[in-house]
């Protein structure tokens, strides 16, 4: 009887290992750090390479109760969305490895305000942080510079760096001991280019997380999916500028979709609102985990549970055949 040889690919590249957060011994105040990256094969193919650690799950909390979130989400979190410290604690309890603090856009947003919010969050959790500005270049710069300084040495991921606005954020990361999130619009070459631009400023590649941009299920997910597969293949083939761990934001994208937001006036075939909405986020996230995401940012606690369940099994090496 013929014996089938396990078909293995030979890879000579490796995803960079990046650590989020810093403990007291490392110059920060975090109770624990989280390291991502280090893969030497495609996602979870334990039979041909190393997947040294699971992808990390970040939960997004905002500085104040979001005005535009789906009721399905707000109900799941309850009152804690009124208070960023309480929300942070709840997110940690819901299973986050990392907390993503997102500043929303409002009149009170200022550097001092940002420092205060950051303090509350740092006090509320020992987990590493990712901090995102409100998404407008000037304000992002103001907020992130203040946050970088206030949390000096904490090894946050500061975001979002884009080709049209990265210098100030990178400089703040350099000055105060942080990492950055480099976001490009679903394109392999743009992703490489921004990594180059940022490392040219002196920030080592070990401090850059790459964000290829997420499209939600039904809204362009397959573009992000394929770009991530191509980036990961390039990384494993030894292209040094594609070897950054990848961060994606399926929570934000999926919950912008009408399928997640709208409970009324939708086709009956869409089914139960909460069921559909959570599936929307979970499937967006799980598909991106399969294509190489190292950090997934989620919003709904149930999605966190399901994606964690999936990752746990994928890391169990039950599929290794000798």
């Amino acid at each position: 009887m013929p014996t089938i040889e396990v078909p293995k690919e030979k890879w000579n590249g490796k995803v960079r290992e990046i650590t989020l957060g810093a403990t007291a011994a490392e110059g920060g105040t975090r109770a624990k750090t989280v390291t991502v990256g280090g893969e030497t094969t495609l996602p979870f193919l334990h039979f041909e390479g190393e997947i040294p650690r699971p992808p990390a799950i970040a939960i997004e909390v905002q500085d104040r109760k979001p005005v535009d979130w789906s009721p399905v989400l707000l109900e799941a979190w309850g009152d804690v969305t009124e208070d960023v410290a309480a929300w942070t604690k709840a997110a940690a309890e819901a299973g986050a490895d990392v907390i993503l603090l997102k500043f929303s856009l409002h009149d009170e947003l200022s550097p001092d305000y940002a420092r205060q919010v950051l303090r509350h969050v740092l006090d509320a959790t020992g987990l590493p942080l990712i901090v995102f500005g409100p998404g407008q270049a000037d304000l992002d710069n103001d907020v992130l510079v203040a946050v970088a300084e206030e949390g000096k040495g904490e090894n946050f991921v500061l975001g979002v760096c884009e080709d049209k606005n990265y210098r100030t954020i990178v400089a703040a990361a350099l000055a105060h001991g942080h990492l950055v999130n480099a976001r490009t619009a679903m394109d392999v070459n743009l992703a490489k280019q921004l990594n180059i631009l940022i490392s040219d400023m002196g920030l080592p590649l070990e401090r850059i997380v790459m964000d290829p941009t997420t499209g939600a299920l039904g809204y362009g997910m397959e573009y992000g999916y394929s770009v991530m597969e191509r980036l990961r293949l390039a990384a494993l083939q030894g292209d040094g500028m594609t070897q950054q761990p990848m961060l994606v934001t399926p929570g934000e994208e999926a919950w912008r979709a009408k399928e997640a937001r709208a409970g009324e006036g939708v086709p009956q075939a869409w089914g139960d609102w909460a069921e559909r909405a959570i599936n929307w986020e979970t499937l967006t996230a799980s598909t991106l985990v399969e294509s190489g995401a190292d950090i997934v940012v989620l919003r709904h606690p149930e999605s966190v549970k399901r994606v964690r369940g999936m990752i746990d099994v994928l890391m169990s090496k039950s599929g290794v055949t000798s």
Partner: peptide, 8 residues
Amino acid sequence: SSGTVYPL
């Protein structure tokens, strides 16, 4: 269940 097969 519609809420599951639609996303799939």
